[in-house]
Simulated assay, not measured.
Amino acid sequence: MEPATLRRTMGRFTTGVAVVTTVSGDGPHGMTVNSLTSVSLDPPLILVSLTTGARTTQAVADSGGFAVSILSCRQEPIAMRFARRGEDHFAGLPLEYGQHRVPVVPDALAHVECRTEHEIPAGDHVLFLGRVVATCDREGEPLAFHGGRFLDVVGHGHDVPPWFF
C-alpha cells in the first residue's frame, strides 16, 4: 500500500482538529492532531496518535500527561502554527492553563486533561491512551479537516442521501 493512497483514502473521513500540549523539563510542547477518539466513559479514556520522533511525542512520553484542546472554526491559524515541524509553537504566546496543570489553547471549544495510561508504538506513530482527569467546554462551531484542508461544520436541513452510490 502506497502511503499517498492511504492518506488520500483516509482523507475522505472528516475529523475534528485539536492541539495536544504538555510540559516537560525543557518547557511546553504542542502538536496539531486530527487523530483523537473517545475510548471509554468508565473509566474515562481517550486516545491520541502522535508522530514517532516528534519533540511533542517525546515530551508527552517524558511528562506522563497531556491536554487536548479541541479547536473552534476560528482557530485555523492556531492549527497551522502547531502543525509546523521544528518550530517553537509557543513563541510569542502567553501560556494559558485555565483550570488545568498543562497549557491549553485559549478559546478552544473544549479542553481535556489526561494522565497517560498506556503508550503503544504503532508504525510511524505512538498511540497514547489517556485517563481523563479534567475537562471544560463551551458552545461554538468546530474546526474540521477533510481531504487535506480545513472546513467549517455547517448544519443543514435536507433529505437524507441514499446509502448507495
Rank of each mutant, 00 (worst) to 15 (best):
T14H: 01
R138S: 11
R85Q: 06
H111V: 09
V68Q: 02
A83S: 15
V102Y: 03
D62S: 14
E96A: 15
A134T: 02
L109S: 09
E2L: 14
E139Q: 14
M31I: 12
P94T: 14
F82P: 02
V126L: 13
V33R: 08
A67H: 10
R55T: 04
V68E: 01
E117Q: 15
L6G: 13
V68H: 02
V23M: 07
F164H: 10
T32Y: 08
D88G: 06
V19C: 10
M80W: 01
D62H: 05
T9V: 13
A67Q: 05
C114L: 00
G25P: 03
E141K: 06
S72C: 13
P162T: 12
G130L: 08
G92N: 13
T52E: 14
V105H: 09
P28K: 07
H146M: 07
A134L: 04
F13A: 08
G25N: 03
L71Q: 09
V23S: 09
H89Y: 03
V102Q: 03
P43T: 10
E141A: 08
G86P: 05
T57R: 03
T37D: 08
F150M: 04
G27V: 12
V39T: 01
V153H: 06
T9F: 09
G27A: 00
G86Y: 08
D62R: 09
L143Q: 10
T52K: 13
T52R: 15
A108F: 04
R138Q: 07
R115A: 11
T14Y: 00
R7D: 00
C114T: 05
F128M: 12
V60L: 04
R101L: 12
V33M: 10
V153L: 15
F128E: 03
V133S: 00
F145V: 01
G130V: 13
P161V: 07
A144R: 00
T14L: 00
L143E: 06
I46N: 04
G27E: 02
L129S: 05
A83V: 01
E139Y: 06
A83I: 09
T135A: 02
Y97D: 01
V153D: 02
A144V: 06
P106H: 09
A61S: 09
